[in-house]
Simulated assay, not measured.
Amino acid sequence: METRFLSTRLERGFTLIEILVVVAIVGILSAIAVPVYRDYVTRARLTEAFSGLGSVSTAAEDYWNTSSPHTYDGFDRLPANSANFTFALSGATASAYKVTATGAGPVAGFVYTIDQNGNRATTAAPTGWGTSTSCWIDRKGAQCVQ
């Protein structure tokens, strides 16, 4: 009796359909992930403004408490400007001041302020982020910093 061995053909590689499915999945994930990552990086850069303005508030109160007579006039201890934000003091008088952090480069369009009473405001932001007269916006949809 003769035994025949049937040779089986081993397939190597991928079919065109399999490659297209993988490309479609990667495309869908990229369409979701890239904008979310970009917003995350922007939010991380915004913390530079928040920490800078917070430190200004503390420094301004220290200046007011140690000056005689009590005044904000002459206060000039602002955070150093960076690639992301520039800081400016306006309206420094005996009883008031306002410090503005203006975004530059990747965070251009964001403008945050703080005054002598600790009032925070987002006076400008790119489309979709929103503005507020009572808080610093750090997320799209006008969500405030906690």
Rank of each mutant, 00 (worst) to 15 (best):
F75P: 00
T66F: 15
A44P: 10
T58K: 14
A96C: 08
Y72R: 02
R77H: 14
A80S: 11
S68W: 12
R77Y: 09
V56S: 01
S51F: 13
D73Q: 10
D76Y: 04
A94S: 08
A96Y: 11
W64T: 02
A94Q: 07
T86I: 05
Y72H: 05
N81I: 03
S67D: 10
T71Q: 09
A80P: 05
Y97W: 07
A44E: 14
S90L: 06
E48P: 09
S95P: 02
G91R: 02
W64L: 09
N65I: 08
T66H: 13
P69T: 07
L53M: 11
A59M: 12
H70Y: 13
S67A: 14
T93S: 09
E48D: 14
T58S: 14
R45D: 07
R77S: 11
S90C: 04
G52N: 06
A49N: 06
S51Y: 11
L46S: 04
Y72L: 02
A49Q: 04
S82P: 03
S68D: 14
L53G: 08
T71K: 05
S57A: 15
L46G: 06
A96E: 12
D76A: 12
A44G: 15
S67N: 15
G91C: 05
L89K: 00
F85S: 00
A96G: 10
E48M: 08
H70W: 10
F87I: 01
S57C: 12
F50P: 04
G91P: 03
T86A: 09
T71L: 07
A60K: 01
S67V: 05
D62S: 09
S68H: 10
G91D: 04
S51D: 13
T71E: 07
L78A: 03
G74P: 09
D73M: 11
A83R: 11
R77E: 13
